[in-house]
Every structure is written in structure tokens, then in C-alpha cells.
Nucleic acid binder design. Structure first.
Lengths: 137, 137
DNA sequence: CTTCTAAATGCAATTAAGTTGCATAAACTA
DNA sequence: TAGTTTATGCAACTTAATTGCATTTAGAAG
């Protein structure tokens, strides 16, 4: 069943626990951005702090990445393929629907080339598009 | 001296007060992103709530815009030219330095063309680049 | 299958951010 | 200068983020 999820945890040197399996599965099902608050609502059986630390571990070990947003609360999304601890590549687009509020990763859309001014070094590119998603159209 | 700043306030139907002048000047000098916390540190003479409401007014009247970021606290930047209440156009790039933490607006850099999948409607594009700024290089 | 150890969890508590209501004070208008 | 509207400060509260510590559990080793 969730052997794949277990493997993900093991391959990142994380112990397999119910909380972690549930959280990672939820991210996987949602295929979108989630905040700590979302997890709290979904998983009342786990302590706030546990969920908080789960997010942090996942972040640290490259299972999740932070998604920049304007809301003032941290939101996270699943990492795909190219991520490793300390070396995240997330040049895909994040799309935020102004109707339903969902943030999703458009994996198949590559970010276009971007240049920065003289003297600047570019490490990561984050493209956030908002509008109306296909569901809400 | 700060006649220009006063004019900005007046043209947005906001009363001219010390707090607002100071805040808008600070944004203008910094030419980067600031959070409520930054303002609290800078302007201990004003109440937290006043600064909070100043940010909100400026946001509402199109003097400031929110800048998406990963930190989990809301940050704001000065609007340029094309902004009006209810109709913000901010297709410039935000650059975040991973060394000094500063977020600045690269006004002269236009965001490249972006497309979204079938069924999606695009309203606003936000491009956040991080790396090392010219100061820290 | 038991033992041991490092890691994960839960609980309590704290700090920081965001937000609202209300009384007072100050800015603009006439 | 008086009157009205708006801005400010204070108090209070909610929600998010964070830390320390004791307890429990996962996985490794025997």
C-alpha cells in the first residue's frame, strides 16, 4: 500500500511513523500547497508540534519545499525528482487560484529564462502565477 | 523636503501624518521589502497597531504591494508607476539575497512571458529570484 | 525476540504576528 | 475656529511559530 511512501522516508534517513506516513500521503493526494494549519485541521490525532516538526524534517531532508506566498503563513509542497537535501531545484511554476485559494505546482511548465543585473548571482527561480484554476473556471 | 511624499498620500486620499511620512520614506530609502516587524524595530515611537494599519492602508490604496516570500511573515514593497487601488500590476522581479536577506525589486527587469495550462486563467505573475546580491558578492 | 540507543512524540509554555474595539487626539473642511 | 472625519494608542485577543523536557517508540544489534 504505502510502501512507496515508506521508501521515501527511509531513503531520506527518516524513521517511518504513522504521522509521517499520513502527512506525506496527504501532500501526495492533494498535489498542492499545505500549511501547518491545514495539517492541524486534517490530523487532530497528532500534536501541533509534531506536525510542525514533521514539516521541518521533510523540509530539511528535501521531501518538501517552501512555497513563497503573500499570505504570511508558510506553505509547503512536495518536492519532485531533482531535489536533495541542501540542493533544491524547483524551477516549476506555482499557481494560486484566487477563487478556491489552492496552490498547486505545475510541474510540466518550465520557468522561462531569467536574467539578473550585473553583479547578482542567481540561485533559484520561483514563479508564482495567480488567477483562476481549471476547476473554478 | 518630503513634499513629494505628502503628495503621494494626498493623491491617495490619505491624511498626512508623521507616521505615514516616516513609513513611506523608509520604504523609499530602503527600496526593498519590509515587514511589520521591521517597522516596529525602526519606529519605536509609533504603536504596533498604528504601523500595522499604516501598512494596510498603503496596501489598500495602492502605495504598497505584498511581496510573496517563504518566510511566513508578510512583507511589503513600494508600488511603482502602474499601480492603482484594486488594480495592481507588478510584473517586475523580486530578488532575495540569501546572504543579507534583503528583498529588492528589480524594476527594470521585465518578467518573461509565461503560459499556463488549458483551462487556467492567469491574472498576475510574480517572479522571485534568490541568490547573492551585488552588495554581498 | 529481547535489549539498547537514537530519534520521534506529546505536553507545557513562550514568543512573535496578526487583528479588533474603543476612547482620545489630530487632520482637514467649511 | 468649529465641526467632522480619520488616525492613533491602548488593551485585549487569536493564531502561528518555536523551544525544552520527559516519555515513548522505531530500528539496529546482539
Amino acid at each position: 500500500m504505502s510502501e512507496i511512501l515508506k521508501e521515501i522516508l527511509k531513503s531520506h534517513n527518516l524513521r517511518v511513523t504513522n504521522c509521517r506516513i499520513d502527512v506525506i500521503r496527504y501532500f501526495s493526494d492533494k498535489r498542492g500547497a499545505l500549511s501547518l494549519g491545514d495539517l492541524e485541521n486534517k490530523f487532530t490525532q497528532y500534536d501541533r508540534v509534531t506536525l510542525y516538526r514533521t514539516l521541518n524534517s521533510f523540509l530539511k531532508f528535501g521531501i518538501l519545499h517552501k512555497i513563497p506566498n503573500e499570505s504570511g503563513t508558510a506553505t509547503y509542497g512536495l518536492c519532485y525528482d531533482t531535489c536533495a537535501p541542501e540542493q533544491h531545484i524547483h524551477n516549476h511554476i506555482h499557481f494560486k487560484c484566487n477563487n478556491c485559494g489552492q496552490i498547486e505546482c505545475l510541474e510540466d511548465k518550465e520557468t522561462p529564462n531569467v536574467s539578473v543585473p550585473e553583479g547578482y548571482t542567481m540561485e533559484k527561480v520561483n514563479l508564482i502565477v495567480d488567477g483562476i484554476c481549471a476547476e473554478c473556471a
